[in-house]
Design a protein around this nucleic acid. Structure first.
Lengths: 236, 236
DNA sequence: GCAAAAGTGTTTCCGCTACACCCATGA
DNA sequence: TCATGGGTGTAGCGGAAACACTTTTGC
């Protein structure tokens, strides 16, 4: 029984996912047998519930624990691990994770510009744009697709996207973000009218600095105001 | 690792849930110690995935296997089973299900007027209106609430409600159903305009019989037409 | 003829869409 | 002064909401 986290990040251009490199070396020649990427995951420890395990995984990797996390689906069945390379990998680990065929999927949203990624068992950890993914191990491609699908549904109903932005952002940042998540383009004027209705997007007394064009107004997301004014508001 | 099914049914008036009675008898006096209800559930067998387990549970109970099923959340953690009565019950079973702290929640939609409920280990199985629930065991009340919440979200996006109606239904049936699921009332004329756009609601050459009022037109749901004309259509 | 539910149209309002130009800044 | 993105308003359309009376049947 394990947890896998689909960690989404945003860098003012692309929606990214954090992936861990997995390279299997030949025991004798030490040449790589194969190399691909996987989601960050771990087994659920004794006495933990899935939410706690997900928080632990995130905390280990990112160092903070106030991260947006959302459970989206549980995957199971032996067919999750039947690719030849996955079998090789599992065998090489020695530990018997073969029985660990269930995984609870979480997605999390973080501002990847303001975060330091900790070492993950000295394996390479990298951001990939969701539309330029490398080869993935196990069934992680389908887990990732499902996560994105659920994120797209959720973001139309609730203002969860702000977790992906830093504390201060411009309205253009928000638009780029929604465009990246939804995979569409949006009309700037109409989009801003929508945002203007959302009272929890609060203007700061501050503008962009050191840009070689008209500096944009900065805003911040107020969770308190959001909680008070929860209404059905949808984007797109 | 287990699966719990929240089985929703509709009887032209109420949205119902199928629950199983759980009565613990004192070993000596054979008097009931407590009595409450639980969802239908079972552990996941070796080699099964959660979907298969859910189908099995439904098939055992209902006898057919073409039932609408939707995974909605996974619950875990030791706190699921900490009520005193749950501990008593688990102890009485002898079998060690204490380690079985994870459960994958599914909801299913069936037409409860056209179904025969099989015996469930000779325990009483009953429909309860979702707004008149009995006392529930374990954390099944919160599982049920989550299921209903997810059902409400889903039914606004996709025409899944028809699984709850029999093959032939009137437009009023559909309205009562949506009102029951969403817990609201809906304007008849506007609701019918919505339904009229849904080409997969097909009129039959048939009307209600033996009603002491103007007989209503009967309709049926065509999945084929739905699959062809999938568009974003929402109710509410 | 009465009770009971079926069935039907129109008007109003609001939100969504489409669309183009001026502004402030740094280089 | 130019390049770059920031920022703004309006008109038209279409879907959502509000709302009341006639019809058909069984009794």
């Amino acid at each position: 029984m394990s947890v896998d986290c689909v960690i989404f990040g945003f860098d003012t251009k692309n929606l990214n996912v954090l992936l861990v490199e997995r390279t299997l070396y030949n025991g004798n020649s030490h040449k790589p047998v194969f190399s691909d990427y996987t989601l960050t995951g771990n087994h659920i420890k004794q006495g933990e519930n899935p939410d706690e395990a997900a928080v632990r995984i995130l905390t280990d990797l990112i160092g903070k624990n106030d991260i947006y996390l959302e459970q989206f689906h549980t995957f199971g069945g032996v067919d999750r691990l039947t690719q030849a390379k996955d079998q090789q990998w599992i065998k090489s680990l020695g530990t018997d994770i073969a029985g660990q065929v269930f995984t609870v999927g979480y997605y999390s949203l973080i501002d990847c510009t303001s975060v330091h990624i900790n070492d993950h068992n000295s394996r390479t950890v990298r951001w990939f744009p969701v539309n330029q993914l490398p080869e993935l191990g196990y069934d992680h491609l389908s887990i990732l697709r499902k996560a994105l699908e659920q994120l797209q549904l959720k973001v139309r109903r609730e203002p969860i996207g702000f977790e992906l932005l830093s504390g201060k952002f411009t309205l253009t940042d928000v638009q780029r973000l929604y465009e990246a998540i939804l995979g569409t383009t949006l009309d700037t004027r109409n989009f801003r009218k929508k945002l203007a209705q959302m009272k929890y997007i609060v203007p700061l007394h501050e503008k962009q600095q050191e840009v070689r064009h008209k500096p944009a107004q900065l805003f911040t997301f107020s969770r308190e105001i959001y909680e008070k004014t929860k209404k059905k508001m949808s984007i797109s």
